[in-house]
Design a protein around this nucleic acid. Sequence first.
DNA 1: CAAGTTATTATACATATGTATAATATAACC
DNA 2: GGTTATATTATACATATGTATAATAACTTG
Lengths: 186, 186
Amino acid sequence: MNQDLRVVKTKRTLQTAFIQLLQEKTLDKITVSELCRSSGITRRTFYLHYQNVTKYVEEIIESLLNELEQSMRRTTDYRLTTNGRLDPRMIYLFEHVYNNKEFYHIIFSRNSSFAYYEMFYKRIKVLVRNSMETMDFIDEINDFEVSYQANAILGIIMEWYYGGFEKSIDEMNHILMSVLKRYRVF
Amino acid sequence: MNQDLRVVKTKRTLQTAFIQLLQEKTLDKITVSELCRSSGITRRTFYLHYQNVTKYVEEIIESLLNELEQSMRRTTDYRLTTNGRLDPRMIYLFEHVYNNKEFYHIIFSRNSSFAYYEMFYKRIKVLVRNSMETMDFIDEINDFEVSYQANAILGIIMEWYYGGFEKSIDEMNHILMSVLKRYRVF
DNA sequence: CAAGTTATTATACATATGTATAATATAACC
DNA sequence: GGTTATATTATACATATGTATAATAACTTG
Protein backbone atom coordinates (compact mmCIF):
# COMPACT_ATOMS: atom_id res chain seq x y z
CA MET A 1 0.00 0.00 0.00
CA ASN A 2 2.06 2.87 -1.32
CA GLN A 3 1.35 6.57 -1.10
CA ASP A 4 -1.50 7.88 -3.28
CA LEU A 5 -0.18 8.93 -6.69
CA ARG A 6 -1.82 12.35 -6.31
CA VAL A 7 0.12 12.98 -3.12
CA VAL A 8 3.35 11.86 -4.74
CA LYS A 9 2.73 14.22 -7.65
CA THR A 10 1.87 17.11 -5.36
CA LYS A 11 5.01 16.66 -3.29
CA ARG A 12 7.15 16.31 -6.36
CA THR A 13 5.97 19.54 -7.97
CA LEU A 14 6.29 21.25 -4.60
CA GLN A 15 9.87 20.08 -4.29
CA THR A 16 10.74 21.26 -7.79
CA ALA A 17 9.22 24.68 -7.17
CA PHE A 18 10.99 24.95 -3.82
CA ILE A 19 14.42 24.17 -5.25
CA GLN A 20 13.75 26.66 -8.03
CA LEU A 21 12.67 29.42 -5.64
CA LEU A 22 15.68 28.75 -3.43
CA GLN A 23 17.93 29.75 -6.31
CA GLU A 24 16.04 33.00 -6.83
CA LYS A 25 15.74 34.11 -3.21
CA THR A 26 16.65 33.21 0.36
CA LEU A 27 14.51 30.82 2.34
CA ASP A 28 12.98 33.46 4.60
CA LYS A 29 11.48 35.22 1.59
CA ILE A 30 9.68 32.10 0.39
CA THR A 31 6.04 32.15 1.43
CA VAL A 32 3.40 29.44 1.30
CA SER A 33 1.47 31.56 -1.20
CA GLU A 34 4.38 31.93 -3.56
CA LEU A 35 5.41 28.30 -3.24
CA CYS A 36 1.88 27.28 -4.18
CA ARG A 37 1.66 29.76 -7.04
CA SER A 38 4.93 28.45 -8.47
CA SER A 39 3.98 24.82 -8.17
CA GLY A 40 0.39 25.31 -9.29
CA ILE A 41 -1.24 23.76 -6.24
CA THR A 42 -3.77 25.34 -3.91
CA ARG A 43 -2.71 26.72 -0.55
CA ARG A 44 -5.35 24.49 0.94
CA THR A 45 -3.54 21.46 -0.45
CA PHE A 46 -0.26 22.63 1.04
CA TYR A 47 -1.84 23.01 4.47
CA LEU A 48 -3.32 19.54 4.21
CA HIS A 49 0.26 18.24 4.23
CA TYR A 50 2.32 20.74 6.21
CA GLN A 51 1.70 23.27 8.97
CA ASN A 52 3.88 25.98 7.43
CA VAL A 53 7.05 26.56 5.38
CA THR A 54 9.30 25.74 8.33
CA LYS A 55 7.66 22.35 8.87
CA TYR A 56 7.98 21.67 5.17
CA VAL A 57 11.69 22.45 5.24
CA GLU A 58 12.08 20.28 8.33
CA GLU A 59 10.96 17.33 6.23
CA ILE A 60 13.61 18.18 3.63
CA ILE A 61 16.33 18.48 6.28
CA GLU A 62 15.15 15.22 7.80
CA SER A 63 15.72 13.31 4.58
CA LEU A 64 19.04 15.09 4.07
CA LEU A 65 20.16 13.81 7.47
CA ASN A 66 18.85 10.33 6.73
CA GLU A 67 21.00 10.35 3.65
CA LEU A 68 23.97 11.50 5.74
CA GLU A 69 23.45 8.65 8.16
CA GLN A 70 23.29 6.18 5.28
CA SER A 71 26.47 7.42 3.69
CA MET A 72 28.31 7.30 7.02
CA ARG A 73 27.10 3.78 7.64
CA ARG A 74 28.49 2.77 4.27
CA THR A 75 31.95 3.96 5.21
CA THR A 76 32.17 1.58 8.14
CA ASP A 77 34.24 -0.83 6.09
CA TYR A 78 36.81 1.77 5.24
CA ARG A 79 36.98 3.07 8.73
CA LEU A 80 40.26 3.92 10.28
CA THR A 81 41.46 2.20 13.38
CA THR A 82 39.63 3.55 16.35
CA ASN A 83 42.30 3.86 18.95
CA GLY A 84 40.66 6.64 20.93
CA ARG A 85 37.55 8.33 22.18
CA LEU A 86 36.28 9.62 18.85
CA ASP A 87 35.77 7.51 15.79
CA PRO A 88 37.87 8.98 12.96
CA ARG A 89 35.32 8.05 10.31
CA MET A 90 33.52 11.14 11.59
CA ILE A 91 35.56 12.89 8.95
CA TYR A 92 33.38 11.41 6.21
CA LEU A 93 30.81 13.86 7.44
CA PHE A 94 32.59 16.66 5.60
CA GLU A 95 32.05 14.90 2.32
CA HIS A 96 28.29 14.87 2.67
CA VAL A 97 28.15 18.46 3.82
CA TYR A 98 30.24 19.66 0.92
CA ASN A 99 28.25 17.72 -1.66
CA ASN A 100 25.01 19.15 -0.28
CA LYS A 101 26.19 22.66 0.53
CA GLU A 102 23.00 24.34 -0.59
CA PHE A 103 20.94 22.39 1.94
CA TYR A 104 23.38 22.63 4.84
CA HIS A 105 23.46 26.32 4.04
CA ILE A 106 19.82 26.47 5.13
CA ILE A 107 20.67 25.05 8.54
CA PHE A 108 23.19 27.78 9.36
CA SER A 109 21.34 30.76 7.87
CA ARG A 110 20.56 33.58 10.29
CA ASN A 111 16.90 33.68 9.33
CA SER A 112 16.38 29.95 9.56
CA SER A 113 14.57 28.21 12.36
CA PHE A 114 16.74 26.87 15.15
CA ALA A 115 14.85 23.60 14.62
CA TYR A 116 17.11 22.71 11.69
CA TYR A 117 20.26 23.13 13.75
CA GLU A 118 18.74 21.10 16.53
CA MET A 119 17.97 18.27 14.12
CA PHE A 120 21.55 18.27 12.87
CA TYR A 121 22.93 18.43 16.39
CA LYS A 122 20.87 15.48 17.56
CA ARG A 123 22.01 13.34 14.64
CA ILE A 124 25.66 14.12 15.27
CA LYS A 125 25.14 13.28 18.91
CA VAL A 126 23.95 9.81 17.93
CA LEU A 127 27.02 9.35 15.75
CA VAL A 128 29.35 10.48 18.53
CA ARG A 129 27.62 8.21 21.03
CA ASN A 130 27.75 5.19 18.72
CA SER A 131 31.37 5.92 18.11
CA MET A 132 32.14 6.05 21.81
CA GLU A 133 30.28 2.80 22.39
CA THR A 134 32.68 0.93 20.14
CA MET A 135 35.62 2.00 22.26
CA ASP A 136 36.01 -0.65 24.92
CA PHE A 137 38.27 1.42 27.14
CA ILE A 138 35.39 3.78 27.88
CA ASP A 139 33.64 2.50 30.96
CA GLU A 140 30.62 4.80 31.02
CA ILE A 141 29.41 7.35 28.49
CA ASN A 142 28.84 10.83 29.85
CA ASP A 143 25.91 12.65 28.22
CA PHE A 144 27.59 16.01 28.54
CA GLU A 145 30.75 14.72 26.98
CA VAL A 146 28.71 13.54 24.00
CA SER A 147 27.10 16.98 23.68
CA TYR A 148 30.49 18.60 24.01
CA GLN A 149 32.05 16.57 21.22
CA ALA A 150 29.01 16.66 18.94
CA ASN A 151 28.59 20.41 19.09
CA ALA A 152 32.34 20.96 18.80
CA ILE A 153 32.24 19.25 15.43
CA LEU A 154 29.28 21.39 14.42
CA GLY A 155 31.38 24.41 15.39
CA ILE A 156 33.99 23.42 12.85
CA ILE A 157 31.37 22.86 10.17
CA MET A 158 29.75 26.21 11.02
CA GLU A 159 33.09 27.95 10.60
CA TRP A 160 33.45 26.19 7.28
CA TYR A 161 30.05 27.59 6.30
CA TYR A 162 31.02 31.14 7.36
CA GLY A 163 34.05 30.85 5.10
CA GLY A 164 31.73 30.03 2.19
CA PHE A 165 32.81 26.37 2.12
CA GLU A 166 36.03 27.50 0.45
CA LYS A 167 38.23 24.95 2.17
CA SER A 168 38.30 21.54 0.52
CA ILE A 169 37.05 18.34 2.10
CA ASP A 170 40.63 17.17 2.59
CA GLU A 171 41.61 20.40 4.29
CA MET A 172 38.65 20.07 6.63
CA ASN A 173 39.59 16.50 7.40
CA HIS A 174 43.08 17.64 8.24
CA ILE A 175 41.82 20.50 10.40
CA LEU A 176 39.54 18.27 12.44
CA MET A 177 42.19 15.60 12.85
CA SER A 178 44.79 18.07 14.08
CA VAL A 179 42.39 19.58 16.60
CA LEU A 180 41.36 16.15 17.85
CA LYS A 181 45.00 15.10 18.11
CA ARG A 182 45.94 18.22 20.01
CA TYR A 183 43.26 17.45 22.57
CA ARG A 184 44.07 13.76 22.48
CA VAL A 185 40.43 12.97 21.75
CA PHE A 186 41.72 9.79 20.13
CA MET B 1 21.89 64.35 23.71
CA ASN B 2 20.03 61.36 25.10
CA GLN B 3 17.26 59.39 23.48
CA ASP B 4 13.88 61.14 23.12
CA LEU B 5 11.72 60.58 26.19
CA ARG B 6 8.87 59.40 24.00
CA VAL B 7 11.06 56.68 22.54
CA VAL B 8 12.23 55.65 25.97
CA LYS B 9 8.65 55.39 27.16
CA THR B 10 7.57 53.41 24.09
CA LYS B 11 10.40 50.91 24.49
CA ARG B 12 9.75 50.57 28.20
CA THR B 13 6.07 49.73 27.80
CA LEU B 14 6.97 47.39 24.95
CA GLN B 15 9.45 45.57 27.15
CA THR B 16 6.94 45.22 29.96
CA ALA B 17 4.29 43.84 27.63
CA PHE B 18 6.79 41.47 26.06
CA ILE B 19 7.94 40.00 29.37
CA GLN B 20 4.30 39.63 30.37
CA LEU B 21 3.31 37.89 27.14
CA LEU B 22 6.30 35.59 27.41
CA GLN B 23 4.88 34.20 30.63
CA GLU B 24 1.51 33.54 28.99
CA LYS B 25 2.71 31.97 25.76
CA THR B 26 5.78 30.86 23.83
CA LEU B 27 7.73 33.36 21.77
CA ASP B 28 6.58 32.03 18.39
CA LYS B 29 2.96 32.80 19.30
CA ILE B 30 3.70 36.45 20.06
CA THR B 31 2.75 38.65 17.11
CA VAL B 32 3.47 42.30 16.44
CA SER B 33 -0.26 42.99 16.59
CA GLU B 34 -0.69 41.41 19.99
CA LEU B 35 2.46 42.97 21.39
CA CYS B 36 1.16 46.37 20.33
CA ARG B 37 -2.34 45.72 21.66
CA SER B 38 -0.88 44.73 25.03
CA SER B 39 1.43 47.70 25.29
CA GLY B 40 -1.06 50.20 23.88
CA ILE B 41 1.12 51.45 21.07
CA THR B 42 0.34 51.50 17.37
CA ARG B 43 1.76 48.88 15.07
CA ARG B 44 3.10 51.74 13.01
CA THR B 45 5.15 52.88 15.99
CA PHE B 46 6.57 49.40 16.43
CA TYR B 47 7.63 49.25 12.81
CA LEU B 48 9.31 52.64 13.14
CA HIS B 49 11.70 50.99 15.59
CA TYR B 50 11.96 47.33 14.57
CA GLN B 51 11.56 45.30 11.41
CA ASN B 52 9.68 42.44 13.07
CA VAL B 53 9.39 40.47 16.31
CA THR B 54 12.61 38.58 15.62
CA LYS B 55 14.61 41.78 15.21
CA TYR B 56 13.07 43.08 18.41
CA VAL B 57 14.09 39.96 20.32
CA GLU B 58 17.58 40.22 18.81
CA GLU B 59 17.95 43.54 20.61
CA ILE B 60 16.94 41.89 23.87
CA ILE B 61 19.40 39.03 23.37
CA GLU B 62 22.07 41.56 22.46
CA SER B 63 21.78 43.34 25.79
CA LEU B 64 21.60 40.00 27.59
CA LEU B 65 24.94 39.08 26.04
CA ASN B 66 26.39 42.49 26.83
CA GLU B 67 25.49 41.86 30.42
CA LEU B 68 27.14 38.43 30.23
CA GLU B 69 30.33 39.98 28.90
CA GLN B 70 30.30 42.54 31.69
CA SER B 71 29.84 39.97 34.42
CA MET B 72 32.62 37.82 33.00
CA ARG B 73 34.93 40.79 32.81
CA ARG B 74 34.27 41.47 36.46
CA THR B 75 35.45 38.01 37.40
CA THR B 76 38.90 38.57 35.95
CA ASP B 77 40.30 39.33 39.40
CA TYR B 78 39.07 36.09 40.83
CA ARG B 79 40.27 34.11 37.89
CA LEU B 80 41.97 30.84 38.37
CA THR B 81 45.47 30.26 37.20
CA THR B 82 45.43 29.77 33.48
CA ASN B 83 47.87 26.97 32.99
CA GLY B 84 46.38 25.68 29.76
CA ARG B 85 44.62 26.37 26.49
CA LEU B 86 41.26 27.35 27.91
CA ASP B 87 40.71 29.97 30.56
CA PRO B 88 38.93 28.33 33.51
CA ARG B 89 36.99 31.46 34.31
CA MET B 90 34.80 30.32 31.43
CA ILE B 91 32.88 28.52 34.12
CA TYR B 92 31.41 31.79 35.38
CA LEU B 93 29.34 31.63 32.25
CA PHE B 94 27.05 29.10 33.88
CA GLU B 95 26.14 31.56 36.57
CA HIS B 96 24.81 34.11 34.12
CA VAL B 97 22.91 31.50 32.13
CA TYR B 98 21.25 30.10 35.23
CA ASN B 99 20.29 33.50 36.56
CA ASN B 100 18.73 34.42 33.23
CA LYS B 101 17.25 31.05 32.29
CA GLU B 102 14.08 32.50 30.79
CA PHE B 103 16.07 34.48 28.23
CA TYR B 104 18.60 31.79 27.38
CA HIS B 105 15.60 29.54 26.98
CA ILE B 106 14.60 31.67 23.99
CA ILE B 107 17.94 31.03 22.31
CA PHE B 108 17.56 27.24 22.38
CA SER B 109 13.85 27.00 21.57
CA ARG B 110 12.95 25.00 18.48
CA ASN B 111 10.81 27.76 17.03
CA SER B 112 13.33 30.52 17.63
CA SER B 113 15.42 32.11 14.94
CA PHE B 114 18.89 30.67 14.48
CA ALA B 115 20.08 34.29 14.71
CA TYR B 116 19.92 34.14 18.51
CA TYR B 117 22.14 31.08 18.66
CA GLU B 118 24.56 32.68 16.23
CA MET B 119 24.81 35.76 18.44
CA PHE B 120 25.54 33.62 21.47
CA TYR B 121 28.08 31.55 19.55
CA LYS B 122 29.95 34.59 18.30
CA ARG B 123 30.22 36.04 21.80
CA ILE B 124 31.57 32.80 23.23
CA LYS B 125 34.06 32.66 20.40
CA VAL B 126 35.41 36.06 21.43
CA LEU B 127 35.75 34.86 25.01
CA VAL B 128 37.56 31.70 23.93
CA ARG B 129 39.86 33.68 21.66
CA ASN B 130 40.69 36.24 24.35
CA SER B 131 41.34 33.43 26.73
CA MET B 132 43.73 31.73 24.31
CA GLU B 133 45.55 35.00 23.69
CA THR B 134 46.56 35.22 27.34
CA MET B 135 48.28 31.86 27.13
CA ASP B 136 51.82 32.56 26.07
CA PHE B 137 52.64 28.99 25.13
CA ILE B 138 50.20 29.21 22.22
CA ASP B 139 52.14 30.36 19.20
CA GLU B 140 49.33 30.94 16.77
CA ILE B 141 45.56 30.86 17.26
CA ASN B 142 43.68 28.58 14.92
CA ASP B 143 40.23 29.89 13.93
CA PHE B 144 38.79 26.41 13.71
CA GLU B 145 40.10 25.52 17.11
CA VAL B 146 38.32 28.56 18.52
CA SER B 147 35.07 27.51 16.84
CA TYR B 148 35.55 23.99 18.10
CA GLN B 149 36.01 25.04 21.72
CA ALA B 150 33.34 27.74 21.65
CA ASN B 151 30.64 25.52 20.24
CA ALA B 152 31.65 22.64 22.47
CA ILE B 153 30.85 24.80 25.47
CA LEU B 154 27.52 25.73 23.90
CA GLY B 155 26.87 22.01 23.52
CA ILE B 156 27.15 21.58 27.25
CA ILE B 157 24.88 24.54 27.92
CA MET B 158 22.37 23.24 25.38
CA GLU B 159 22.32 19.87 27.15
CA TRP B 160 21.74 21.73 30.40
CA TYR B 161 18.78 23.45 28.75
CA TYR B 162 17.33 20.14 27.50
CA GLY B 163 17.50 18.88 31.08
CA GLY B 164 15.41 21.86 32.16
CA PHE B 165 18.35 23.54 33.90
CA GLU B 166 17.94 21.04 36.71
CA LYS B 167 21.64 20.69 37.41
CA SER B 168 23.08 23.34 39.69
CA ILE B 169 25.71 25.87 38.67
CA ASP B 170 28.31 24.00 40.72
CA GLU B 171 27.45 20.71 39.08
CA MET B 172 27.82 22.33 35.67
CA ASN B 173 31.17 23.78 36.66
CA HIS B 174 32.30 20.35 37.71
CA ILE B 175 31.03 18.73 34.53
CA LEU B 176 32.83 21.20 32.29
CA MET B 177 36.05 21.00 34.28
CA SER B 178 36.11 17.22 34.15
CA VAL B 179 35.53 17.17 30.39
CA LEU B 180 38.24 19.79 29.84
CA LYS B 181 40.62 17.88 32.06
CA ARG B 182 39.95 14.62 30.25
CA TYR B 183 40.86 16.27 26.97
CA ARG B 184 43.73 18.15 28.57
CA VAL B 185 42.33 21.42 27.24
CA PHE B 186 44.13 23.04 30.11
C1' DC C 1 -14.42 -1.11 -15.68
C1' DA C 2 -17.41 0.37 -12.05
C1' DA C 3 -17.84 1.72 -7.18
C1' DG C 4 -15.95 3.60 -3.43
C1' DT C 5 -12.38 6.36 -1.32
C1' DT C 6 -9.82 10.35 -0.76
C1' DA C 7 -6.84 14.11 -2.51
C1' DT C 8 -7.48 18.45 -4.55
C1' DT C 9 -9.95 22.60 -5.70
C1' DA C 10 -12.88 26.93 -5.48
C1' DT C 11 -14.22 30.11 -2.52
C1' DA C 12 -14.51 32.61 1.68
C1' DC C 13 -13.31 34.62 6.27
C1' DA C 14 -10.85 36.54 10.29
C1' DT C 15 -6.57 37.93 11.44
C1' DA C 16 -1.56 39.34 10.68
C1' DT C 17 2.12 41.69 8.01
C1' DG C 18 4.56 45.50 6.19
C1' DT C 19 4.17 49.98 4.07
C1' DA C 20 2.21 54.70 3.16
C1' DT C 21 0.24 59.52 4.12
C1' DA C 22 -1.37 63.20 6.64
C1' DA C 23 -2.69 64.83 11.13
C1' DT C 24 -1.69 65.24 15.99
C1' DA C 25 0.74 65.18 20.24
C1' DT C 26 4.82 65.54 22.81
C1' DA C 27 9.51 66.46 23.80
C1' DA C 28 13.75 69.44 23.00
C1' DC C 29 15.84 73.74 22.82
C1' DC C 30 16.84 78.57 22.90
C1' DG D 1 7.16 79.69 27.37
C1' DG D 2 6.94 79.76 22.62
C1' DT D 3 8.96 77.68 18.55
C1' DT D 4 10.83 73.95 16.27
C1' DA D 5 11.66 69.19 15.59
C1' DT D 6 10.06 64.66 15.65
C1' DA D 7 7.71 60.64 17.70
C1' DT D 8 3.24 58.80 17.63
C1' DT D 9 -1.38 58.10 15.87
C1' DA D 10 -5.46 57.24 12.75
C1' DT D 11 -6.53 55.24 8.78
C1' DA D 12 -5.95 52.56 4.73
C1' DC D 13 -4.19 49.09 1.38
C1' DA D 14 -2.13 44.99 -0.79
C1' DT D 15 -0.64 40.75 0.46
C1' DA D 16 0.01 36.55 3.56
C1' DT D 17 -1.65 33.22 7.08
C1' DG D 18 -4.37 29.55 8.79
C1' DT D 19 -8.89 27.47 8.85
C1' DA D 20 -13.52 26.00 7.02
C1' DT D 21 -17.14 23.91 3.73
C1' DA D 22 -18.90 21.86 -0.18
C1' DA D 23 -17.96 20.38 -4.80
C1' DT D 24 -14.98 18.06 -8.02
C1' DA D 25 -11.42 15.30 -9.70
C1' DA D 26 -8.26 11.52 -9.51
C1' DC D 27 -6.71 7.35 -7.68
C1' DT D 28 -7.43 2.56 -5.60
C1' DT D 29 -9.54 -1.67 -5.20
C1' DG D 30 -12.47 -5.53 -6.23
